[in-house]
Design a protein around this nucleic acid. Structure first.
Lengths: 232, 232
DNA sequence: CGAGCACTTGACCGTAGTCAAAGTCGGTGG
DNA sequence: CCACCGACTTTGACTACGGTCAAGTGCTCG
C-alpha cells in the first residue's frame, strides 16, 4: 500500500492541486484552502493504489506518474477502464455513491497522488459553488468518454474499432499520437487481443493510413482514409 | 419536435420534479423553486427529443413514458447507449461541457419530459449545495453503469456477455426481470446481433438457467449457474 | 551490454456475423 | 371480440473474422 507523508509543507499540495483542471478556475486563496485538506500519497511502480472491495471514500488525483484503472474478470482477463495521467482523478464513484470499489488501480510508473477525503470535499463544495460546477463538468466529460468507449466496443469488427479509437485520439486530423498506454493495455481497452491489435495496426500501416514511431507513437497520415475505415 | 405547454399550472412541474431522485432530498420550498424553472415537453412515440448536432443546453428529465438514447454509426447500426424510464435524465453532458449532442434521443412511447435550462440549473446549484451533491451522485452512478457496460462489451464471447447483463439487472438473485427494451435493442446494447442474442438466450433456457415469459420478461431460475457462465 | 518483457508473426480452430426465410406475438381496426 | 397485418423474433446454413497457442524478434531498462 502507498505511503503517506506526514510532515510535508503545503507547497507540494499546492503543486498538485494547481495542476488539476477541476481546480483551475479557483482563486489563489481558494486553492490554498483546497491544498490544506489534501494529503499526498506515493505509489511505487506496480503497486496498488486501491483494490476491489475496499471502502475508500477518497478522491485520488494523479500528480506525477501514471495509474491504470481496470476490472478483473473471472477468467483472469483485465479490462482496462482507463489510464490516468497527471491531472486525472479517480475515486469519484466511491465518493458519491457509498459503494465499495469495483475496480483495481495500479501504478504503472512510480507515482505521486493527492487525496481528498469525502468529508473535506463535501465541505469545500458547500463553500465554493464553482468547484461543484467544475466537478460536474469533469464527470460529464468522463461519462462522455465512457459512452464513447462503449460505442466503440460494440463494433463487431476489430479494424473499425481500432480506427475509431485512433480517429478519436487524433482529433480527426492527421498528426502524431502519443499512446496513453502500452499496446497490450490498449488491446484490452478496445476489447481485443494484443495479437489482433498488432495485425490490424499493421494493416493500417500497409495501406499507408498510419505510421508507427517507436512503441508509443502513431502518426496518422491520411485522416480521410482513416475516417472511411472507422464506422463512427 | 416536441410541443411545449405555456399555460400549465405549477402542479405538473412539481409532479415531475418530485419524482426525480436527484431532487428528492430537497425541502418542499426548494422543490417549488426548482419546479418554477422547469418546462414540460411532450414527445410522441417515435418522435425525436433531440438529435445529433443540436446545441441544446438543456437537462431533460423523463416523467412519463420511455426515451431511447443511441449513437448512429456510419454503417447504419444503432448503438443503444441506454434507455430512460421515468426519473432518469439526459442532457447533462451538453449542460456541462459546451458541446453539441453526439447522440439521438427518441421516444419509444408517448412521453412527457421536464426540461431545465443550463442557466437555471447553474443558478439553482449556487443556491442549493445539496443539489450539486445529488447531481454529482447521479452522474457518478451513471459513470459506473457506463464503465460496467464497457466491461461487458469487452468480453469476446456472447454467452458470458449476456449472462453478465442478466446477472446485473437481476441484482444477482433469482427472480423475474422486466427487460427495459426490445430484444433487438438489447442486442445492440450488448454489442451483438439479434440472432446471436436469440441463440444464446435459448441456450440459457435449454440449460434451465432462465425462462422467458412473453417478449419482455425473463425469469432467472438459477442465479448460481448464471454466475458460473458470467465472467464478471 | 545483457536479460526480460513487449510486441510481432504464423497456423489452426471455433464462434458469431451474414443472408435468407419461417414463425409468432401484439396491436389495430372492423 | 376476433381477425388480420406488421414488426419482432427465431431458426438454419454458410462463411470469415478474431481468438488461441506457440515461437520468434526487437526494444528498453537496469
Amino acid at each position: 500500500m502507498a505511503h503517506t507523508h506526514q510532515h510535508e509543507s503545503i507547497e507540494q499540495e499546492l503543486e498538485c492541486v494547481s495542476q488539476v483542471p477541476i481546480f483551475q478556475r479557483l482563486a489563489a486563496d481558494q486553492l490554498t484552502s483546497v491544498a490544506q485538506v489534501t494529503r499526498p500519497v506515493l505509489a511505487k511502480k506496480g503497486g496498488a493504489v486501491f483494490s476491489t472491495g475496499e471502502v475508500s471514500q477518497t478522491l485520488y488525483i494523479v500528480n506525477v506518474g501514471q495509474v491504470r484503472l481496470y476490472h478483473l474478470t473471472e477468467d483472469g482477463r483485465e479490462q482496462v477502464l482507463r489510464v490516468l495521467n497527471p491531472g486525472d482523478f479517480i475515486g469519484e464513484i466511491a465518493l458519491f455513491t457509498d459503494e465499495i470499489h469495483t475496480s483495481y488501480a495500479e501504478a504503472t510508473k512510480d507515482s505521486e497522488l493527492c487525496t481528498i477525503s469525502r468529508a473535506a470535499l463535501t465541505a469545500l463544495i458547500k463553500e465554493m459553488p464553482p468547484l461543484s460546477m467544475a466537478l460536474l463538468g469533469a464527470l460529464a466529460d468522463r461519462l462522455k468518454t465512457a459512452e464513447r468507449q462503449a460505442t466503440l466496443l460494440a463494433i463487431p469488427d476489430a479494424l473499425p474499432r481500432l480506427a475509431g479509437y485512433l480517429q478519436e485520439v487524433s482529433g480527426h486530423r492527421a498528426g502524431t499520437i502519443d499512446l496513453p498506454m502500452s499496446k497490450q493495455d490498449l488491446a484490452a481497452y478496445l476489447g481485443m487481443t494484443p495479437e489482433s491489435l498488432s495485425r490490424k495496426l499493421r494493416q493500417l500501416v500497409k495501406d499507408g493510413i498510419v505510421e508507427t514511431i517507436g512503441r508509443r507513437q502513431i502518426k496518422v497520415l491520411d485522416a480521410s482514409s482513416l475516417a472511411a475505415v472507422a464506422p463512427v
